[in-house]
Design a protein around this nucleic acid. Sequence first.
DNA 1: TATGAATGAGGTTTCATTCAT
DNA 2: GATGAATGAAACCTCATTCAT
Lengths: 206, 206, 206, 206
Amino acid sequence: MASRKKVPLSDPDRYREVLTAARAVLAEVGYERFNMDLVARRVQASKATLYQRWPSKAALIIDAIHTYQARPDCPDTGSLVEDFRFLGRWAVTQTNADTRGLVIGLLEGSRRDEELARLYLERMQQGGPDLAQLVVQRAAERGELAPEVDAEILQDLIGALYLFQLLVRGVPPDEQLIDRVADGIIGPLSAKRATTAAQQTQGNPP
Amino acid sequence: MASRKKVPLSDPDRYREVLTAARAVLAEVGYERFNMDLVARRVQASKATLYQRWPSKAALIIDAIHTYQARPDCPDTGSLVEDFRFLGRWAVTQTNADTRGLVIGLLEGSRRDEELARLYLERMQQGGPDLAQLVVQRAAERGELAPEVDAEILQDLIGALYLFQLLVRGVPPDEQLIDRVADGIIGPLSAKRATTAAQQTQGNPP
Amino acid sequence: MASRKKVPLSDPDRYREVLTAARAVLAEVGYERFNMDLVARRVQASKATLYQRWPSKAALIIDAIHTYQARPDCPDTGSLVEDFRFLGRWAVTQTNADTRGLVIGLLEGSRRDEELARLYLERMQQGGPDLAQLVVQRAAERGELAPEVDAEILQDLIGALYLFQLLVRGVPPDEQLIDRVADGIIGPLSAKRATTAAQQTQGNPP
Amino acid sequence: MASRKKVPLSDPDRYREVLTAARAVLAEVGYERFNMDLVARRVQASKATLYQRWPSKAALIIDAIHTYQARPDCPDTGSLVEDFRFLGRWAVTQTNADTRGLVIGLLEGSRRDEELARLYLERMQQGGPDLAQLVVQRAAERGELAPEVDAEILQDLIGALYLFQLLVRGVPPDEQLIDRVADGIIGPLSAKRATTAAQQTQGNPP
DNA sequence: TATGAATGAGGTTTCATTCAT
DNA sequence: GATGAATGAAACCTCATTCAT
């Protein structure tokens, strides 16, 4: 009921609260409708206060996205399928109901702001390309890749299916999706699988 | 320089000119900055003229996107790889430098407008899921799919990699991409590969 | 269903149809929202057609009000009450559900247009002041007016109560109102009443 | 010349200045032509400032009319004529050169806005019906009403003649009008008059 | 003559940003 | 430093009026 009074933005909790609110607003109403008033009202601060910390709307959005930007450790399970599963699960970990809105907001925002463009890529590539590239490289070195497989395309596979599910299917990707991609696509593409499959096949009959 | 005078919008060429301009504007400045003035100035018409034909900004965008919306015939080459290659190439056909901007505009717009949401899906699924589903089904019936392959995920593969290239890599997908996906991913996943893999497996052991 | 085609405005019926429509629109949406499109659509004509006959919106409204503007014959029943009743009933005759809207429209319009101002007065005074003045004068000459009665104010009585009912009570004045005013106000004010009252007074006591 | 700088609307004087300006604008140009720019320019504020306090044009108008809305105490002089005179004079007190414009504005506005409709009635009935009803009731109880007089109609008499003078005659009602109505109409209608009339009648015959 | 269509000139409202306390 | 308030610069949309057929 009573509106919070004069909690300074220098308070880290307060600061983070604003960024969280900004992300929520962006996710909810989209980039076009995002505005300072919405954020200010949500955290019961004045617009002027926000402008004290962030020189512009873009700056606030940028900062809001920056936060919590984490990267997983590079997996090295010795198996392409499992490495990919790890990366995928980690991405799922970062995903929630807001993610679609956030990604679309970043996409739209990136049309107007270089910094947002950079952030969008970072976000999209959390545990993405860079690590995926490494993982695939190692798999290739282990001879785990069928020779006709296009390694470069393979790198993007998980990210691509994640994005497709999110933006086209409109469903936040979950562990199940990751498993189906890992087992139903990456697996069949990795050479070892042949063996594994063979073993499985062998194990099944009798 | 000299402003065209009173070319009626009923003239189909003029009509299409407006839609083309609208698409260009959307692609260039994004959904947020898209506005009737920009379009009006570009086609040297008055805003009121546009409002005569399109009752709102959203309606104009919707119509602009609708146009040229086509679907390919469903391919049936007898080979999954070739069917997919056909669908992919057809999508490439519809792609140009504006496509990324357009897709982002549709995504952002779809947050505010049901109709745009529908159009976005349509656009994203031109020759997409529906046909891809059919193609994969037929391949399965032909026994062309390795048994462990997840058919449902497979359907989305081309679309997903197309979208990833477009939105994350920022490069309009081209035939080369399609070929790499077809030959480097779909190919290895098709049953023929099973044979190949078997041969390889046979070759590897001793 | 089929829209009437090209009935010329020179056709008197068509002409009057437009004016009727204009009056209806004015009554329905008020002066502020009145616009040529509304009228045009209602009579299935184009705005340009209307502008051919009427040089401006104001001209159309003016003309629309002009029509059917009639005046009653001056009553001379020999009794003030009956003369007033006649005038009042005549006004009721000209009244319908649209009247309130029309009067308000005229009032608002008269702020912007001299001609409308004149028309408003005419409308308000149909069978109003001029005739009322005559009627009261004659009554005075007949000695029908109690001496303390203010004749000039008396003239306005019926009109005033009509207007009050219309604009404040929001109910179109009807015959009942007129009768109540005639018998319940004008009657008691006329000298004859004194007699009547005297008789009644005589009759009432023991 | 020099534009006032940033005088806050929270300043009560400034606030009232805006409302006064709004009333003036409404009175001067009418409801149709009333617009925020006119008000803003007149008080040297920006339209956005006005919109901060009043969410819409209608809201501003409503508030402008609300202010100064007062009601007189209910008179109880023991004489119908004097009670009515009191109410009438009070109404005159609230009347000035703008009143006609304001009332017309309210009438037109009330076609589009429920709240304005309510306000119009309130304004029209300041010291109107409610109190008039009471006053007439008391007079009836005192036996001050001639028996044939229609009490309900009588209640509206002063208001009606006030409105007629204002809207039809185009003259702001003044004390003189009130006195003429009181003495020249109400007086003759009150029972005391019966006596007087009787005396006069007695004097007239021979 | 009737009409479909175009348009200039507003009018309402929104929002990023800036002052003044 | 936080805030209430002000504001310029658009953006969307409407309407009286005018063209061209």
